[in-house]
Amino acid sequence: MYPFAFTKASNTAEALNAGRRGGRYIAGGTTLVDLMRETVERPETLVDISALPLREVTVTERGGLRIGALVRMAEAAAHAKVRTIYPVISEALELSASAQLRNMATIGGNIMQRTRCTYFRDVTAACNKREPGSGCAALHGFNRTHAILGTSDSCVATHPSDVAVAFAALEATVRLLGPDGARSIPFADFLLRPGSTPNREQSLRKGELITAVEIPALPRPLKSGYMKVRDRQSYEFALTSAAVALHVRGGVIREAKVAAGGVGTVPWKLPAVERHLIGERPSRALWAEAAKHAVDGARPLEHNRFKAELLKRTVERQLRIVGGTK
């Protein structure tokens, strides 16, 4: 670990001040400290933002939810409103990490977490994300867990978050506060595909702070849920996952929100699947037909070819589970 300075911000202004001077924000630290120990991350200054007043979960005026950036994963998962309005968020959180990590890690930190690509985390390997221009060892290396969607020749790393898949499905908004004031950006624009600059992962400006993630209101009744497919039954990142939310009225699907995880360089929204569902009546045949579109544009690698088929089946299964057809 490289030496670093550590400061604590007691209010938002202090934090922004430190952030503007190049300080890195730290809350739960469950990703950042690991990466510092591997010398992947070498921040000169850490700014502890745990004392900031960003720990509330509130229902917005229109009936959506605002989850403060410093709400712990465990708190968000257990929150009554989250559980009742958006079970998909609770489920995604509870299928993440371990109980100990969920007690430490925050929502803001979760969507900032960096890839689990082992070449990224091994400083002796070529990695354009860690060291722009050095190449991508994963492209022709061991890439079983890597992405098949949204990849480029520069980077095939998967975004590891589960709850971000739910946020992507539900078309959440990220609220930011920076030296120039507050702004909101759609979740789909917050995380960046690698393109030729995989080192740029979020559309954050220097010193900007995530204050909350906002989930828009959706028509009710809304059924939603998250499914995660992995080798072992706990404490593993997804091979594939699916976040699904459906609003069915009069036997017809009126709203469909679907995204996939474990397969994309960012949480992968599936608009083609959604389009296929809206206006249709739930049926096994519909789920299968819609799920076929989950892999539109997929570009599998040597060791993750199976993910394309697995993703289709994962989406199909989760549509069936949420859609309730036997």
């Binding site: 689990r116 082992t118 070449y119 985390r121 091994d122 002796t124 390997a125 290396g141 061991f142 867990t145 080798d231 072992r232 593993e236 990142f237």
Partner: peptide, 11 residues
Amino acid sequence: RIVNANLADYM
């Protein structure tokens, strides 16, 4: 190189 030299990737 051992690619999964840690307990997150070696299961």
